[in-house]
Amino acid sequence: MNQTLSKISEDIKSHRTKQDLFASRTFFVLTVFPVLLIVIITVALYLRAQPILSEYALTDLLYGEIWKPNQGLFGFRPFILGTIWVTAVGVILSVPACILVSIYLAEYAHARTRTIAKPILDLLAAIPPVVYGVWGLLSIVPFVDDVLAPLSKGRLDSIPILSVTQPTGFGILAGGIVLAVMIAPLIISVTFEVLSTVSNDLRHASLGVGATQWQTIRNIVIPQTLPGIIAAVVLGASRALGETIAVLMVVGNVPKIPTSIFDTAYPLPALIANNYGEMMSIPLYDAALLGAALVLLVVILIFNILSTLVLQRMLRRK
């Protein structure tokens, strides 16, 4: 009697153990998969870009200024600079406001304000990029054309990066404004998290000697969280670097090196999205586009890894 009982319980036990083992192994594979995917994509991009990389020196590709695939000219430089310009304008427009909003939410706002405002800000991230693109097309491009460009003309025009030569409103500034709004929720929520890692004991130590809240923020909270705030900005920048459709719709897409925020630009993601799959009969065209994708991927990966490392260290401290 006893023996059968123990036999049964042993059967159950082994069955449960097997189940457990199966679950943990399946989940492990599922977890490893995305990690592998990054490696696979990077390697695949590299292999597919190999033809052009063996044909041209990497420096020629990166510094080449002319993009004429049917003549065999594959200069990435206008696209790389276009990406940098649009991203830089977006980040510069977005960051100051985002940091102030985060400080307000983390330091000044009542709990009630915070619980209402935070989800709404997060909701900005849920708007599809194409909707941002349409908004940019219908509101920002005319705004740049009708308000900002005339504002610069004759006044700030003499400053090279503000000169207006391009009369449509499409361009870096429009793209930058759209990007600024798109990356705001990410920068705000990460900066908010980072600010919340500062212990209240520290805030109270400062307030306790009669410092104002602003003095406490400036002298204690910000110095303490600066690496994390920078990481939040870098994360926002890497999001901006890869943003495709919304930027593509407002930025003009002319493969020329920009010199002013009112110029048009042609960022790397737009180049790839606009052209991949067309005119593939041109030799090396496929390899060139995938090479562009590889450059973009590597830059964004580096940005992401760096900021994630900094943020993980800060949040662990919490």
Partner: peptide
């Protein structure tokens, strides 16, 4: 309130040196 806290100092339960 900052004047109040200047006149009335607090020594907290755990020491909290500023960074």
């Amino acid at each position: 309130v900052t004047e109040v806290r200047k006149i009335v100092g607090l020594l907290a339960q755990r020491p909290s040196p500023l960074p």
